[in-house]
């Protein structure tokens, strides 16, 4: 089993052409801590997550795992250390649930079939889906699909987990099950960055809440400070809208 590590973004900048989406983002997540990122649509939350695992290369700034810059690392190897869960799950529809989880174990970790299957089944068991191993993603509910996606990421024993609005595409009654998995993972000591609109989750689970607006983290702090004693007017306005 691996150990989770601390994560830090320092002055991260990124522009898509003339559109300066990230304008100097700073974010620090202690080892084993959970940071929730909140903020209005288009503020750059998803883009920030993608620069953390270098699905997008930042133009400027630094990303550190365990205090060490990862921008010089092999990006594919880096992404094996960082699990990511998407709003739309991004499961592979042409494979069974089990194969979705074993693909990276077998091709990247070079595990044998039996070992990979056993590991994947154990991971599916943990998210309550042991019985769905042979189903296709399309045969599952959205909530179940998202839990498979989480199991798929966790099977690689990541040191950090990134969640991009993992419950936004789900029917309301399915949200709870996915949030429960995420809360358990947080309590078990995974370092997590969670972009979310679920303010209740942020309040209960986060160690740090970071408010992003127009490409910067405008305000960050423990949930009580953010939700009860917000300083910045824009954050207060945002909270007034979503709470």
């Amino acid at each position: 089993m691996t150990t989770s590590v601390s994560l830090e973004a320092r002055d991260v900048h990124l522009a898509f052409g003339p559109n300066r989406v990230l304008r100097g983002v700073d974010l620090t997540v202690r080892r084993g801590a959970t940071a929730c990122v909140i903020g209005p649509s288009g503020s750059g939350k998803s883009t920030l997550l993608r620069t953390l695992n270098r699905l997008i290369e930042p133009d400027r700034g630094d990303v550190l795992l365990d205090g060490r810059s990862v921008l010089g690392d092999d990006p594919d190897a880096l992404r094996q250390r960082i699990g990511m869960v998407f709003q739309q799950f991004n499961l592979f529809p042409h494979m069974t649930v089990l194969r979705n989880v074993t693909l990276a174990l077998r091709r990247l970790r070079k595990l044998g079939e039996d070992e990979a299957d056993a590991l994947a089944r154990a991971q599916l068991e943990l998210v309550g889906l042991a019985g769905k191993a042979n189903s296709r993603p399309a045969q599952l509910s959205g909530g179940q699909q998202q839990r498979v996606a989480i199991a798929r990421a966790l099977a690689l024993k990541p040191e950090v987990m990134l969640f991009d609005e993992a419950t936004s595409a789900l029917d309301p009654e399915l949200v709870k099950g996915v949030l429960a998995v995420m809360a358990d993972l947080s309590a078990a000591g995974m370092t997590m960055v969670v972009v979310t609109h679920e303010m209740g989750f942020a309040r209960r689970v986060a160690d740090t809440v970071a408010f992003m607006d127009r490409g910067v983290v405008l305000e960050a702090g423990p949930p009580e400070a953010i939700f009860e004693r917000a300083e910045h007017p824009r954050l207060r306005r945002f909270l007034a809208q979503v709470l």
Binding site: M1, R31, G32, G131, D184, L185, G189, M190
Partner: peptide, 29 residues
């Protein structure tokens, strides 16, 4: 229309409250 269900219908499981036990050993808070 999708392939006919090949796998025997998996046993039904509800969508809430999956237990999650073994995550990485990190700082317990």
């Amino acid at each position: 229309h999708g392939r006919p269900a090949t796998a025997p219908a998996d046993e039904d499981e509800d969508d809430t409250d999956p237990a999650l036990a073994g995550a990485p050993e990190g700082d317990r808070r």
